[in-house]
Amino acid sequence: MEAKNLSKRWILAFYTPRSSLEACKSAVFDAGAGCYSGRGNYTECCWATFGIGQYRPGNAADPHIGVAGRLEKVEEAKVEVLCIGEEVLNKAIQSLKEAHPYEEPAYYVIKLEEF
């Protein structure tokens, strides 16, 4: 059986304050994330859920929201977006870091397997 020649795919998941949601989504979409090729040629696809994130900035931190040393709770969105190809993934992460208001944006990457 001949192996399929498929592009590598990942899910980029990130958290952002609700006030920065649209800017962060636009940044990763502009980098090429959220596109599904095929008959429908869908773009700007993602999944977003909302919840409360919390963090305590260290003494040397310069937090966008909150004060160093004090526990902060923020209404945030978790966004999941498909990245097809390593170049798109890297560009999306870099664009997210540039658009995100936090000193250290929280994100993770999941590699997808074809079945």
Rank of each mutant, 00 (worst) to 15 (best):
N41E: 15
G32V: 06
E44Q: 09
A48D: 15
K25W: 09
C35F: 08
K8F: 04
S7V: 10
A13N: 10
A33P: 03
I52H: 04
L12D: 03
N59G: 13
V67E: 14
G34H: 05
A48L: 09
G53D: 00
K8Q: 15
C35P: 02
Y42E: 12
A27N: 05
C46H: 11
R9Y: 05
W10N: 02
Y15S: 14
R39Y: 15
S19N: 09
G32K: 13
A13F: 06
C35G: 06
A27I: 01
L21A: 01
A23F: 01
S7I: 14
G53T: 00
S7M: 13
G38N: 08
V67K: 14
G38D: 11
W10Q: 03
E44R: 10
N41G: 09
D62N: 12
C46M: 09
W47A: 08
G32L: 07
G38T: 08
K25A: 04
R39C: 09
V67D: 09
G53W: 00
A61W: 06
Y15Q: 11
H64S: 14
L21R: 01
A48M: 08
G40S: 08
S7N: 10
F29Y: 13
K8R: 13
Q54L: 02
D62R: 15
P63G: 10
E44I: 03
V28F: 01
F14E: 00
F14V: 00
C24Y: 00
D62M: 14
C45T: 10
H64P: 01
W10Y: 09
N59T: 13
P63E: 04
E44H: 13
C46R: 03
I65V: 02
L12I: 10
D30K: 07
L21H: 01
F50H: 12
R18K: 10
C24D: 00
A23L: 03
A23D: 11
C45Y: 08
C46Y: 07
D62V: 11
I52N: 03
R18H: 12
A27G: 14
Y36T: 04
I11Q: 13
L12F: 09
R56A: 07
K25R: 15
T43M: 07
T16M: 01
C35K: 14
F29G: 03
C35W: 08
G51V: 00
G58T: 10
F14M: 00
P17G: 11
S19P: 01
E44W: 09
A48K: 03
T49G: 14
Y36H: 03
Y42F: 13
V67P: 02
